[in-house]
Design a protein around this nucleic acid. Structure first.
Lengths: 126, 126
DNA sequence: TTATACTATATGCATCATGAATATAGTTGA
DNA sequence: TCAACTATATTCATGATGCATATAGTATAA
């Protein structure tokens, strides 16, 4: 049984939690900065309309406060400075549990889809 | 391509949207009242710690305002009155699109899990 | 009969997260 | 010099949440 109270964000249904796990996965094998992460997040459904830049930057700062990531400034190559984030050893170890939580959430979605399809099937049988 | 701006709740990442789709699916083939829905929601990960009663009741009232469901009072059988909710024809028709949205969200979660597993594999290969 | 527990719904309040807008600032090209 | 792009952060209003509380009917045990 998966412990749904696993840390990262207390409330598993908050969009915030999914965003954090996406960010930790992206940062798992490389350091990166906010503006670049915005583009990479699109692959996980965070298009411009779904995620505002302010929310992303705020969540990154919060994740650092919580000890999930660390940051340092990097001189801009033809542009302003970048705050580059690195995953901490702790999150790197905890990430497998966070991913288990995503597996659980995915299975719940499957259950909902299956229930819907059964109901449609029964309706059409009449 | 699935229209992610499909109605029910504007912000697809809000937990609220998933709750609403669960409720519409539960109400698809039967009328039901709030207190009973609380138990049925547990199957979709909404345990007591994940969903407060106030949030559920408030969301149901809001869904009625939005025309997703209708309600009527039913005399209590050994207890107080129950507000019984019924799905509207409109939501019944729209539900297949809402479920498509859940399919999309599920596929995004699969993508995240796959990415994580690839990264773990590469790490272990070194 | 009084108190407690359970069912059932609703609301006030403080808190928290969000988006939009704005501020700041460095660089590049017209 | 002005606009456009990169990059981060903050203010402000709004909106959703949980907790606590209110209300109310029924059942049951002390």
């Amino acid at each position: 049984m998966i412990d749904k109270k696993q840390r990262c964000c207390d409330k598993p249904y908050k969009s915030e939690k999914f965003l954090k796990i996406c960010l930790l996965t992206l940062l798992y094998d490389k350091a990166d900065h906010g503006y670049s992460l915005i583009e990479e997040l699109e692959e996980y459904g965070f298009e411009k309309e779904e995620l505002s830049v302010s929310t992303l930057y705020r969540n990154l700062r919060k994740m650092e406060k919580e000890g999930l990531v660390k940051s340092s400034w990097k001189k801009g190559e033809g542009g302003p400075q970048k705050r580059v984030y690195t995953i901490t050893e702790k999150s790197k170890n905890d990430l497998s549990e966070y991913i288990n939580f995503i597996r659980y959430r995915k299975s719940v979605m499957k259950r909902l889809i299956d229930t819907y399809e059964e109901k449609i099937f029964k309706r059409e049988a009449n």
